[in-house]
Amino acid sequence: PPPPSAPSLPPYFTKGSIIQLADGELKRVEDLKTEDFIQSAEISNELKIDSSTVERIDSSHTPNFAIIQFAVGEHRSQVSVEVLVEYPFFVFGQGWSSCCPERTSQLLELPCTKLSVGDVCISLTLKNLR
């Protein structure tokens, strides 16, 4: 097992984790489809799905981390996040993708493809942000 100080992903990305959609339906994390997220957001009063396009992927100074720059929403606002290279993002029409899918598969057993510049990821914002 990794030392306690090693950063790790939250448990819900592990293959077999049970996810509850907004309508109450239960699905395994590896079985989720784009429509599940879209329909859940439609039901939600607070959350809205945004398209976030990957614009850049850079390695971080922190080992095992990457810096991903997204263009978020219709205004293509620039947002950068620093995440573990195995952190999975859900790509529209494709499924789970990460900077290092081999590591994601190894650590989480989650089937995953390589996240690339140009991929459009599902992200969330609050509906009444203004």
């Binding site: 939600s44 799905i49 969330l124 914002t125």
Partner: peptide, 25 residues
């Protein structure tokens, strides 16, 4: 007898990152 372990259920939105751009008002 072994009590059945409760399986954790996670809400769908915990899987999706919040990428809220900074509001420029």
């Amino acid at each position: 007898n072994v009590e059945p372990r409760s399986v954790p259920v996670f809400p769908w939105h915990s899987l999706v990152p919040f990428l809220a751009p900074t509001q420029s008002d």
